[in-house]
């Protein structure tokens, strides 16, 4: 202050007011960027395409003849582990006129299990 003086309290009060409003403004802005990050990030993080892809390759692999079938199964499991850091496991059995498949997928963040019937 210009002098030791207890006048001009208005200015000090307004100063407080403005600084508080900036503080809250900063808080709100901060929140909104966090929201934006999580929306786009969660889209990337959720392995929708990976699950769909694994599902379709497992479906395709059922048409592969039996001795080679085990190779394809190991391919899917081992390459998933190495290149996609995800655990993929599946088993199936064929009944009278349908095939039942159990799929397990886990990439550490998302876990997905499915029981799936192909007529």
């Amino acid at each position: 202050m210009a002098r030791l003086n207890d006048d001009a309290q208005w200015i000090v009060l307004m100063g407080f007011l403005v600084s508080f409003s900036f503080f809250f403004l900063a808080l709100v802005i901060n929140q909104s960027t966090v929201v934006g990050q999580t929306t786009a990030e969660s889209v990337i993080e959720f392995p929708k395409n990976d699950i769909r892809d694994v599902r379709s390759v497992i479906h395709q692999s059922l048409n592969v003849a039996s001795p080679v079938f085990n190779d394809v199964e190991s391919d899917i499991k081992i390459i998933s582990m190495n290149r996609k850091s995800s655990v993929v496991n599946y088993s199936f059995f064929s009944a009278a006129n349908a095939t039942y498949i159990q799929i397990h997928y886990n990439n550490g963040v998302t876990e997905y299990n499915e029981n799936w019937t192909i007529v």
């Binding site: 403004l25 909104s32 929201v35 934006g36 786009a40 889209v43």
Partner: peptide
Amino acid sequence: IFLLAFIWVLSMIPGLLVNLQGYTIDYDA
């Protein structure tokens, strides 16, 4: 001067929020 600055800041607030939450983030989602 104080009032002018204050009014200016106030008028900026909606613009700030629309810019942020509006098109760059929400619209893409």
